[in-house]
């Protein structure tokens, strides 16, 4: 089975019902996406498929249908970090850091469809990404900051 991750095509020998997260971590050694719950309750495994956030623990690799996968490792461009990554660093969002790749991927996808979010919009978009350290106020501030960066870019 072939799939494209972060712009690189890979050939993997897996069954079609293997969750994408397993393929990324165990077959391709792309370990930015994290295993948290395995049932779409936490968001730690969030990646993009054709630019849209998807919980990779819930998507069977056979259902990718040619979609291009982007993980946290592929979010930045050669010119620099993604605006959400920059904002994450500036606001020192991460505490333990386990959830942050999922948080960043979710935020980056969200800002594509809602470039000027309110606090309420951010809460609606990000509440399904859990942070056991409780960094939610910093997450919200960083998403606002990233939105501003993207508008000014």
């Amino acid at each position: 089975m072939r799939l494209t991750v972060n712009g690189t095509e890979h050939e993997v020998d897996v069954t079609s019902d293997m969750p994408l997260l397993w393929v990324l971590r165990d077959e391709l050694n792309i370990t930015g996406p994290k295993y948290g719950c395995g049932i779409a309750q936490c968001g730690a495994c969030t990646v993009h498929v054709d630019g849209f956030a998807v919980r990779s623990c819930q998507l069977a690799v056979g259902d990718l249908a040619g979609g291009h996968v982007t993980t946290i490792e592929g979010l930045a461009s050669p010119e620099g970090l993604h605006a959400v990554q920059e904002a994450w660093i500036e606001h020192q969002v991460a505490q333990c850091g386990y959830c942050q790749s999922g948080q960043i991927m979710q935020a980056a996808s969200f800002l594509e469809t809602n470039p000027e979010p309110t606090d309420e919009d951010i809460d609606a978009a990000m509440s399904a990404n859990l942070c056991r350290c409780g960094t939610y106020p910093r997450i919200r501030a960083a998403v606002h900051a990233a939105a501003k960066k993207l508008q000014e870019a």
Binding site: S16, D17, A40, T46, F52, A53, V54, R55, Q58, L59, A60, G62, D63, A65, Q106, S109, F110, T113, N114, D121, A124, A125, M126, S127, A128
Partner: peptide, 17 residues
């Protein structure tokens, strides 16, 4: 959920099996 969090983020499309 397009404005916030798309339903399909978690309710993924299952075409096979």
């Amino acid at each position: 959920g397009v404005e916030y969090l798309q339903c399909s983020t978690c309710h993924t499309t299952k075409d096979t099996d």
